[in-house]
């Protein structure tokens, strides 16, 4: 179980792997995530499922190398197995025919946006996707998203591909044009989701965001994943991961995500010293 069947690099530090996990593939619904451990002394980290194939019994994960665990995953080869994958976790996305749904994905957030886009499309919505990245080389899954969208707009911060600018500017453009929008779904880095909600709040558009707080168990047992929504404390793993973006305290989320900055760096440096760690391509490194 949990064997890597396919693996590819989507961009610098960004990987995609297809993993054997039949039970999870069968039960998974768009919006849900898993928690994994690479090896016995590994930590538990949550990742949203980017795709699944119930018939083949596989799930697809997409991740960016940022800490010890994700770098470790980067060095894992086809045929290697994860120690543990627990899932599906969290509430599924509420899919229904809303009318026109705009999906906004930033950076690695495009991966978890994909199954939701697909689900919204299948539910009969008119889907407009806006995906963005810092630069062309960091754009991922554009072809996948395109297949399940009625319209796709791509933007890059540096103008190397598509619209020159941020996804928020593209979204603002749609609003200004008078596009009738019934729901916005935004997934990406916290500052991006915050900025999107800034735009949609002014236009009074219902907005769903998918949050990625630090987690341990993923079952509601520990509260590591606390977030504040409409002034109330919620557990990201069981009450979410999706919340009403217009009510989320993003500043708190950012602070909480930085809680282990120091130890995370220690863990990463420690990993570099291991035989496996030497193999990975650290940014600025070999």
């Amino acid at each position: 179980m949990f064997e890597i069947l396919q693996k590819e690099r989507l961009g610098p530090g960004v990987n995609r792997a297809v993993i054997s996990a039949p039970d999870i593939a069968r039960a998974h619904k768009p919006g849900q995530f898993i928690i994994l451990r690479t090896h016995n002394d590994g930590e538990r980290i949550p990742l949203t499922v980017a795709d699944k194939d119930a018939d083949k019994g596989t799930i697809t994960l997409v991740w960016q190398e940022v800490g010890a665990t994700t770098y470790y995953m980067g060095t894992m080869a086809v045929g290697e197995k994860f120690q543990d994958i627990c899932g599906p976790l969290g509430k599924p996305t509420h899919l229904e025919k809303f009318g026109t749904v705009v999906g906004v994905g930033g950076g690695i957030g495009v991966a978890p946006l994909y199954p939701i886009t697909k689900g919204m499309h299948d539910a009969g919505n008119q889907v407009i996707s806006i995906i963005g990245a810092r630069t062309e080389g960091l754009l991922i899954m554009t072809e996948d998203i395109k297949k399940v969208s009625d319209e796709l707009i791509i933007s890059t911060d540096d103008g190397s591909f598509g619209v020159h600018g941020f996804v928020t500017q593209v979204l603002q453009g749609l609003i200004d044009k008078g596009t009738k929008i019934d729901l916005v779904v935004a997934i990406g880095p916290v500052p991006m989701m915050k900025a999107v909600c800034g735009v949609t709040k002014k236009a009074n558009l219902p907005t769903v965001v998918s949050l990625n707080p630090i987690m341990v168990d993923g079952t509601g047992m520990c509260g590591a994943c606390r977030v504040e929504v409409a002034g109330k404390t919620m557990f990201g793993c069981v009450d979410g991961p999706e919340f009403d973006g217009l009510q989320v305290d993003f500043d708190l989320l950012m602070k909480r995500l930085a809680m282990y900055k120091g130890p995370e760096l220690i863990a990463l440096n420690n990993f570099r010293e291991t035989p496996r760690g030497c193999k990975c391509s650290f940014p600025g490194g070999a």
């Binding site: 002394d41 538990r44 341990v216 509260g223």
Partner: peptide
């Protein structure tokens, strides 16, 4: 929460960090 603190320390063996990965 005590659950989180103790789970990190016991189940995830944070007391061995950075030999283990959970802080």
């Amino acid at each position: 929460s005590a659950n989180e603190f103790l789970t990190r320390a016991n189940l995830m063996k944070a007391y061995k960090f950075p030999e283990t990965d959970t802080p």
